[in-house]
Write a protein that binds this DNA or RNA. Sequence first.
DNA 1: CTGAAAGCGCTTACAG
DNA 2: CTGAAAGCGCTTACAG
Lengths: 342, 342
Amino acid sequence: MNQPSTRSRRATGRATLADVARLAEVSPMTASRALRADASVDPLLAERVRQAATKLGYVPDPAARALASQRSSHIAVLIPSITNRLFVELLEAVQQVLREGGYQTLIGISHYRPLEEEVLVREHLLHRPAGMLLTGLEQTPLTRQLLQASRVPVVSMMDLADEGEGCSVGFSQWAAAAAMTRHLLDRGRRRIAFVGAQLDARAMQRLQGWRDTLVQAGLYDPGLQWLDEQASTVALGGSLFERILAAEPQVDAIFFCNDDLAQGALLRALRLGIDVPGRVAVAGFNDLPESAEMVPPLSTVRTHRAAIGERAAQMLLALLRQEQPGARRVDLGFELMVRQST
Amino acid sequence: MNQPSTRSRRATGRATLADVARLAEVSPMTASRALRADASVDPLLAERVRQAATKLGYVPDPAARALASQRSSHIAVLIPSITNRLFVELLEAVQQVLREGGYQTLIGISHYRPLEEEVLVREHLLHRPAGMLLTGLEQTPLTRQLLQASRVPVVSMMDLADEGEGCSVGFSQWAAAAAMTRHLLDRGRRRIAFVGAQLDARAMQRLQGWRDTLVQAGLYDPGLQWLDEQASTVALGGSLFERILAAEPQVDAIFFCNDDLAQGALLRALRLGIDVPGRVAVAGFNDLPESAEMVPPLSTVRTHRAAIGERAAQMLLALLRQEQPGARRVDLGFELMVRQST
DNA sequence: CTGAAAGCGCTTACAG
DNA sequence: CTGAAAGCGCTTACAG
């Protein structure tokens, strides 16, 4: 009895589905179904199976499951950058939810480049992820095609897809930038510069929100638009701040496309003895933790990135459970944080 | 010919090892070995196999490989926090190297708690990672036991293990803190406070470096040791700065156990009009990107976290290839960054 | 609702 | 150095 074959390879010692089935006195198939809460298994049998599994401390082997089902328990999450705190907080929320849902998170960094994202999508698809979470909507045509062909469920984070265009959770960058610009106008500012860095799609949408608002107010001046392809850093913000004031002395407000840049501007102003907001107002975007501590505290737009990550992950889990995800497009909005720099 | 079985499940369309073997006119076993550069396969055959694989665009199925070999192509990387930029940079370097080595990175966040780390180790072990990268050396006894029993190769990052104690890449927190303390003494400071937050093992080692140096100088005063269990943030640094100066007016230098806290102190000093370094010197630890931009620029200790991540990942890859990893204990040192806050 | 058979795509453990 | 056989631990696709 229990004569092990001479060529046995069992080395794991872990309980297997067959062990559970034997203990529950059902076939492995029934055990498999019961444990996945799959097709309608007789509730009594299902319960017996579950108890057997608990008793044996059974944990399904992810590799075996993936091989048989052609689908893994991994979810690939692609973000543009991991040194940008924004995406770190997004990621943390995502991972939390996915982990509770029984999935593991694989992270890919695209460095803001659609072509790198394409490579990442291709690589990850080889591992047959159960689902994917993407940042933004600037996928290359090939990326879209690969995803569609793979039939892997996808949810996009940060930006909002057009109606009927796929699942997305985010907010309107345009509206948020427009709101901040309007705030500056309300404060009596008339020569409002915009500084964009990195120049990813979201920065450009913010630019558009600024521009449209100023055009409408009859105050748009293309000379006040400062774009820089470099990554956003505190150092870059400081240097741009100095250059703008030198080039356009009549500027009375600068709207930076994110907080790193704006923080750099505030620090540079301190160093140079430039009065903010007296001489010039400074606004940022995202509301990073340090922004409230700056001197003066930075006015900015708070974005709900943790909520976005959480919601997007939940939506993906619903998709994986074949449930209707409720809304396929969730707008989580933003919040204007008026502090003392404007 | 090529009569597919009526119950075929092939749906992937991907080339399989059998396809490669057929094209190269060898057995699947030989193809498998050739592709892994395993046992000495006849070089001519190996070349034929490699060409066939390229021609077919063959990519091994990770799930099948994991199931058969009981070892996946994933590497688990456990870090204490992902909102701390230090670990983000560590992680980025790690992931880069692992990816080039053909491995995928799975991230676990322990929130600085050994017990959470234990849970993560247990969870990840279920997925049979090829290897693991841990942060620090404060594993619980059970964690150590689980790791040892699993026989999964492990490399520790940041701290240095004792000789013969397992693989590690890092630097001496003690020496770095001692060096900064000596610098403050050299600048003529005599009442040097130390501020620790989070109170993880590394913060405590820094505390020890500060203490030992002051004891040796005959200037140690336990009343100047400020410890706070909260996470290090800019806001906390500001509030501690204010409290310390109120409680110990004769303090002439404050050594914060990391840059976040020190930055908060500098900002608070600006707000309160306290002269740094005139009234009090401020020092940090880690050299975050913003530190050089502060007013005044922050003196701190630069830690080589990217290099640590890179080196640790390389060491793990060497272990996985069964190579001798050269040194099993690599000290990457630190650099004193003397700027204008001290 | 349940189960016996086959198969997912690799590698281990032998034998030669 | 090479290969035929068996097996890793699940799920798919049927049949009943």
